[in-house]
Amino acid sequence: MQRILLSIILPLLFALPLKAQKDSVQRVINKEVWVPFIKAFNEGNTEAFLAVHSKDVSRVVENSIWDYKEYAQHTREGNAAMKEHKQAQKLELRFTRRVVNGNRAYDVGYYKGTATDADGTSRSYYGKFTVLLRKEKGQWKILMDQDSPEDASEATFQKASPME
């Protein structure tokens, strides 16, 4: 009986430090990437937004892949249009899968964006994101970013886990 209990308990004891380590790394990723990403997105701050991305970033959009230069250009244009039309935006993220392996991480989840026009009219939109991150010079950066409206709704957003 003792052997059976030990065979159950010992693997759990070794798994707990690994889960704690993974959670700790995810908190660092949240602090270094997701918190500034959301803040910069909501403020329309292009430079702060780009700062959380690797210079090697690939942004997958529909049927094309943008490099850093193209991504920066589209981000600048989008933020300029938002400011010109006096629009505000709010982005929220929730996660369905988070994997960390050394200096790479993989995050999948749903976002909810709310755009508010100058007259106060607002509308929400949803998407599913997939992101590959890489630690560069001691700092986590987004290496690949892709999102789509596939299976995205208020319901799928609410089912996903909020950022801790």
Rank of each mutant, 00 (worst) to 15 (best):
A15P: 04
G102N: 11
I38K: 01
T96W: 10
Q26C: 15
N30R: 15
F95T: 11
Y106H: 11
Q21E: 15
N30C: 14
R27F: 08
E84M: 12
V100T: 09
S54H: 06
A105M: 02
K31L: 14
R94A: 03
H53F: 08
R76L: 15
I38P: 02
D67T: 05
E70M: 10
P17D: 12
A105H: 09
S54V: 01
V28W: 06
N63F: 14
V52Y: 07
I38C: 02
A80N: 12
W66P: 00
Y110K: 02
K83D: 13
N101T: 00
N103Y: 05
S24M: 13
V57R: 00
E32V: 07
N42I: 00
G44M: 09
V33N: 04
I38L: 04
G44D: 10
W34M: 11
S58N: 13
R76F: 10
Y110A: 02
V61Q: 14
K22D: 06
V99Q: 08
V28Y: 08
V108L: 06
E70K: 14
Q73G: 07
L93Q: 09
S54F: 01
D107E: 09
V25G: 05
Q73R: 06
S58E: 14
D107Y: 12
V28A: 06
Y110M: 10
E77T: 10
S64W: 08
N101K: 03
V33L: 10
K83S: 05
K55W: 02
H85Q: 14
S58Q: 15
Q73C: 00
V57T: 04
P36T: 07
K112G: 02
F95Q: 06
V28C: 05
D67S: 11
E77L: 09
A51I: 11
V52A: 08
H85D: 13
F41V: 05
F49Q: 01
V100L: 10
G113R: 08
Y71R: 04
N42P: 01
L93T: 11
W34R: 05
N101I: 02
S54L: 04
F37Q: 04
T96M: 05
E70A: 12
E84L: 12
Q89S: 07
F37D: 03
V61P: 13
Y71Q: 11
E92M: 08
A51M: 01
V28T: 15
M82W: 12
N45K: 12
L93Y: 08
E77F: 01
F14E: 00
V60W: 08
Q89C: 03
Q26R: 13
Y71M: 12
N79K: 06
G113I: 03
K112I: 09
D107C: 01
R27C: 03
V35G: 00
Q87Y: 13
K112H: 08
N63R: 11
F37E: 04
V61W: 14
R98K: 12
R97N: 09
V57C: 11
D67G: 13
S58G: 06
P17C: 11
L91P: 10
V33W: 04
Q89T: 11
H85R: 15
Q21H: 15
H85I: 07
F37A: 03
T75A: 14
